[in-house]
Design a protein around this nucleic acid. Structure first.
Length: 726
RNA sequence: GCGCGAUUAGCUCAGUUGGUAGAGCAACCCGUUUACACCGGGAAGGUCGGGGGUUCGAGUCCCUCAUCGCGCACCA
């Protein structure tokens, strides 16, 4: 700690600011202080024990790769919020975590297997699980180091992993509670099935793609039916039309018709259903309930037979006769050839534009299948969520996300939470081998079906990863009995990517309300994508991926951080250009040089933070400065960090350095002692306030400079007080 | 098809309740004044996507069109 005599210029200042030799040392200092942990802050007296809590749960990082620019943005924004709140005297908790990221990680790992010439199919499930676990643990230690590089002041002592026992336990309790409340059911329903990944999805993992295909008009007895998927038509034995369609009024519901079809004569049944669009095609269609959602619903309504035509790998089943075993992609044209030879093709439209549902990961066309899986009944959960969102009990930043959320909640579908992958939390349930009935079994002691008394087997599926991360705010805090849960829940802000507003944010609201009876967070702050300098989405195939760690190594973490903040409004995408980061490196150095000037020109006075004897010229400057601080503080509280960053930059550079310091040169070298002291006190006081305001934006350089400023009884800048009314 | 964004200086973006347009970067001219060339001084640069309306006054409110981006949707 500096005494009043040793505030000579530190030799460090002789060269420009060097982030490389500074950052790791500073981070270590912070970690060793223990101040990332709110309990330590209270113990050591830097935060009052009765201070209001402020909580932010870090979106658990996917432990399957390394830090990308998006993470850089997350860490920057969240650390900024946390450092600000800590400096404002809150009992501040930022809880970090890692996500096993079920399907995402499994896909990454499968690619790795593929490269090694292996495949997950046929592998022992336990062995595969162990391999992915090792892979994940290895990655997670990498990621942790990278998060630290970003300067994240999160409480590592409270770190959680989505596969921790405590997390799984709570997730199981929630599953059981949902089941007991009849909000989870096991049903034979149409699910979206990826034939490559061999798993089903929820509706969110599907990406709609516009494609141009052929559209076939086929002769089906007296009717013409249109389809883009002739390969599904083998079992079609119901022909559906609108009950009010005049063209077909002679056909009666339930009427049988004999006709010639792909593999010979069949008997079709007429079905009248109002879901048919009379305007579209010929107004008549045949249905394939096993492989189409609309058809499934029609079949359910009329209690019709359902038959599987295509297997899990996209190959035709024996019902397809000579085409049995053939992949649908290959079969399509051959089927048309056959139909044509039988004179059953009426016409073919070449450029039929339609939407195809694909796997969001591999682009494989989704093959709907009827499967027995666990579904969460969403309507009751969504209604509760709608209530709190509509009452603004949760604030969205930016606000238009509120509309997006309510729109989704109002049209919500039941959520399929079963996944046929090993990498995830096993579903604690037994399935009856005889009747297919599903039973929740947390204790693993059910041996007979409670419906038919048949043999049971373990459910081999795992939970959708979002089912567990959807409970993140309360599982991480140790719901229901822990002290942390009582202190820190509901949390204050959920800061995450706008992209996952449905996947994650909305589900957290629903599950949080359902389990704890309270909202999980008061604010949702959503950031946009990080794009490259040209505004294009980064992707490995385009080769425009910017690694944040290369930038931080080159320009310093502080430069990277403030570059991510300024010019980036919530919700909109950010173009990341190296020029911008470079500019902020210069800024860090500017701050460094400002300090050198101020310290070397004030070394003969002792800084007094309560100094009152200011000259008129300083009083004006103080008024201007303090008004800015007031304004900035307000904007910090409104989460307008992009404004604050810009304003403090402007003030330090254009005002403090270019004008105030310049005019100080005369004053300080003059002979009016009173004037000199007044100016020197002002310069020191203002520099300190700038450092404090800048700390959440540029924590490393400000902490380093702070260590060299002669102030009595100072602590780490990390836990100094924000300069409002200082 | 429905919905949500965006459209402001060459580029990336700000612009709070309507009151003669801002920043950074780039480009231009000048400058070695001892904090800093990772710098300083100066100048330049926009009929705020088009059209219409409300108003004394609109980048800011309303309508409409266009272009780009993104969600959502079972049209066989």
């Amino acid at each position: 700690m500096a005494s009043e005599h040793d505030n000579d210029i530190n030799p460090k200042f002789l060269s420009p600011y060097n982030p490389q030799t500074t950052e790791d040392r500073i981070y270590k200092l912070w970690e060793e202080s223990g101040f990332f942990n709110p309990d330590v802050c209270i113990e050591k007296g830097v935060i009052k024990s009765d201070a209001e809590a402020f909580t932010l749960i870090m979106p658990p990082t996917n432990a399957n790769g390394s830090l990308h620019a998006g993470h850089g943005l997350v860490m920057t924004i969240e650390d900024l919020i946390i450092r600000y709140k800590r400096m404002r005297g809150f009992k501040t908790l930022w809880l970090p975590g890692l996500d096993h990221a079920g399907f995402e990680t499994q896909v990454v790992y499968e690619r790795k297997l593929e490269k090694e010439g292996r495949t997950r199919f046929g592998m022992d499930k336990k062995e595969l699980y162990k391999e992915i676990l090792d892979f994940t643990l290895l990655n997670s230690s990498n990621i942790k180091d990278q998060v630290k590089k970003m300067g994240a002041s999160c409480d590592w002592s409270r770190e959680k992993f989505t596969l921790d026992d405590s997390v799984i336990k709570t997730v199981y309790q929630t599953f059981k509670k949902l089941h007991d409340d009849e909000l989870v059911y096991r049903g034979n329903r149409i699910v979206s099935w990826c034939t490559k990944h061999q798993t089903s999805f929820s509706d969110l993992e599907i990406k709609d793609e516009e494609r141009i295909d052929k559209f076939y008009y086929l002769k089906y007895g007296p009717f013409i039916i249109a389809t883009s998927r002739p390969e599904t038509k083998f079992g079609d034995k119901y022909v559906v039309m609108h009950p009010l369609d005049k063209r077909y009024e002679n056909y009666k519901d339930g009427q049988k018709i004999d006709l010639e079809w792909i593999n010979g004569p069949i008997t079709a049944t007429i079905i009248k259903d109002e879901s048919i669009d009379m305007e579209f095609g010929t107004g008549v269609m045949t249905i394939t309930p096993w492989h189409d959602n609309t058809d499934f619903e029609i079949a359910e309504r009329h209690n019709l037979d359902k038959e599987q035509i295509i297997d899990e790998f996209g190959k035709l089943l024996p019902i397809a006769g000579e085409f049995s075993g053939m992949h649908i992609n290959k079969a399509r044209s051959l089927i048309i050839e056959k139909l044509n030879s039988k004179g059953l093709v009426d016409k073919i439209e070449e450029n039929y534009k339609h939407i195809v549902r694909t796997c969001y990961k591999c682009g494989t066309v989704i093959e709907p299948q009827i499967k027995s899986q666990w579904f969460v009944k969403m309507k009751p959960l969504a209604d509760k969520a709608l209530e709190v969102v509509n009452q603004d009990k949760i604030e969205y930043i930016p606000s238009h996300y509120k509309k997006i959320t309510t729109h989704w909640l109002e049209n919500i579908m039941d959520w399929n939470i079963s996944r046929q992958i090993v990498w995830g939390i096993p579903i604690p349930a037994k399935i009856c081998k005889i009747c297919g009935h599903g039973m929740v079994d947390l204790e693993n002691n059910i041996t007979k079906c409670n419906k038919c008394n048949g043999e049971v087997k373990k459910d081999e599926d795992t939970f959708d990863t979002w089912f567990s991360s959807g409970q993140w705010p309360f599982v991480t805090l140790g719901y229901p009995d822990s002290k942390d849960f009582k202190t820190f829940y509901p949390t204050d802000v959920m800061e995450t990517a706008g992209e996952i507003i449905f996947f994650w944010v909305s589900r957290m609201i629903m599950l949080g309300l359902y389990v704890t009876g309270e909202i999980p967070f008061k604010k949702v702050y959503l950031h946009g994508l990080v794009l490259d300098a040209k505004g294009q989405k980064m992707s490995k195939s385009k080769g425009n991926v910017i690694d944040p760690l290369i930038l931080t190594a080159k320009y310093g973490t502080d430069a990277f951080r403030i570059g991510m903040i300024v010019g980036n409004t919530p919700g909109t995408s950010l173009s990341l250009s190296e020029d911008k980061i470079r500019a902020y490196k210069n800024y860090a150095n500017k701050l460094w040089n400002i300090t050198r000037f101020v310290l070397s020109n004030t070394s003969d006075i002792k800084y007094d933070k309560n100094f009152k004897d200011y000259a008129d010229s300083e009083i004006i400057l103080i008024k201007e400065r303090d008004e800015l601080i007031k304004e900035i503080t307000k904007e910090m509280d409104e989460y307008k960090f992009y404004l604050v960053g810009e304003k403090i930059y402007q003030y330090t550079w254009s005002r403090f350095a270019d004008v105030i310091i310049e005019e100080s040169k005369n004053i300080l070298s003059g002979d009016d002692n009173k004037e000199k002291i007044s100016r020197a006190q002002f310069l020191l006081d203002t520099l300190i306030k700038i450092l404090k305001i800048l700390h959440p934006f540029m924590p490393f350089v400000t902490e380093e400079i702070w260590s060299m400023i002669p102030v009595d009884n100072k602590n780490l800048l990390l836990v100094e007080k924000w300069p409002l009314n200082d």
